[in-house]
Design a protein around this nucleic acid. Structure first.
Lengths: 181, 181
DNA sequence: AGGCTCATGTAAGCGGTTACATGATTCT
DNA sequence: AGAATCATGTAACCGCTTACATGAGCCT
């Protein structure tokens, strides 16, 4: 069902590692976590406010330079508890992957459709690039296999994403090969 | 970016096969197409209205029984053109798969986390069931391989989804096996 | 001085879900 | 007669994106 506000848990999860400002959180969504979840600052700041009202986070004000005030957010004990519960409860809803290319494919009637070749080739290019990007990420984030032990979940999902893209690329190649002449 | 109203194209795609009522379309999202896209009637009826205002569909009223009026929608020539264009233009945005389980995994620090085993096992159960369901679908929708030629896209995406789930299941099994003791 | 980054907010709009609301037809 | 299904709509709300808005600090 619905989207049930996963953003709040991501914020708690990030604050659980270290105190951060709204700006820091926004950057985290551009870099690291942006690989599999997106959020803009216009969504993050109000969410932080709500989390604070509910007692899951607090903030302290730090001043940079002359008068620039930064709100450094900390997770509270109840926040930590909420995060732990979210991870612990079951995750029974498999989110349907809303892949626009797959959607378009559904409306292709025959293997002789003149659009099919270009569509498959475009996706092959895109997914090949994505695969390379993910492999690059794995190499930079976990340069030696040992490091994976400290951020095991992150390692697992990167490795999972690589496997997924690898399958996608192979499926595209195979489908292209099976096309008539 | 964004969601750019894919629903309108799905409706056009379905109406391109045969005239349907809003109710029929709603059912299509419960059955067949529901495998990879969802929509409720509260979204479909207003969308049909908009599509008609824009000239992409028309409707004729048919009466069932004494006085129950059904609006049977037909795609127009310009609607067919819009659909064709949507399929023909590129699909360069790879939608990030927002898998809640994967998200939770990100916050697992070590391979000794006591929650990891149950989480992986739950997903294995769910994805094994999904895989079986998809294989069942393929067998019922395309009982003989010949039929695939008439609905090639549908055949391809079912077969693709099966491969994807198969990978997911294997990844889970492998990850479970690699867990300490 | 100018431009980029840091830093925090609000507003409008869209796509989607859930709930509210009504009535006819068909099947048991 | 009652229940399930057929059939069509509206309203409220939520999550998210895009755009609007403001100002400080840092680097060249």
């Amino acid at each position: 069902m619905a989207q049930k506000n996963k953003l709040q848990f991501i914020i708690l999860g990030l604050l659980n590692q270290q105190p951060l400002t709204g700006y820091d959180l926004t950057k985290a969504f551009d870099d690291e976590i942006g690989e599999f979840w997106q959020a803009q600052h216009s969504q993050i700041y109000p969410q932080l406010k709500r989390l604070e009202e509910q007692g899951y986070v607090t903030h302290e004000i730090t001043v940079s330079g002359e008068k620039l005030e930064k709100k450094l957010y900390h997770i509270t004990a109840t926040g930590r508890q909420l995060l732990h519960e979210w991870i612990s409860v079951g995750t029974p809803d498999l989110t349907a992957t809303k892949d626009e290319f797959i959607l378009k494919l559904y409306f292709i009637q025959t293997d002789r459709d003149p659009r099919l070749l270009a569509m498959l080739q475009e996706q092959l290019t895109l997914h090949t690039a994505k695969l390379a990007h993910l492999q690059q990420r794995l190499a930079t984030v976990f340069p030696q296999a040992k490091a994976a032990k400290q951020h095991y979940g992150h390692y697992l999902i990167l490795q999972h994403a690589i496997g997924r893209e690898d399958y996608y690329v192979n499926w595209l190649k195979q489908t292209l090969k099976a096309l008539p002449e």
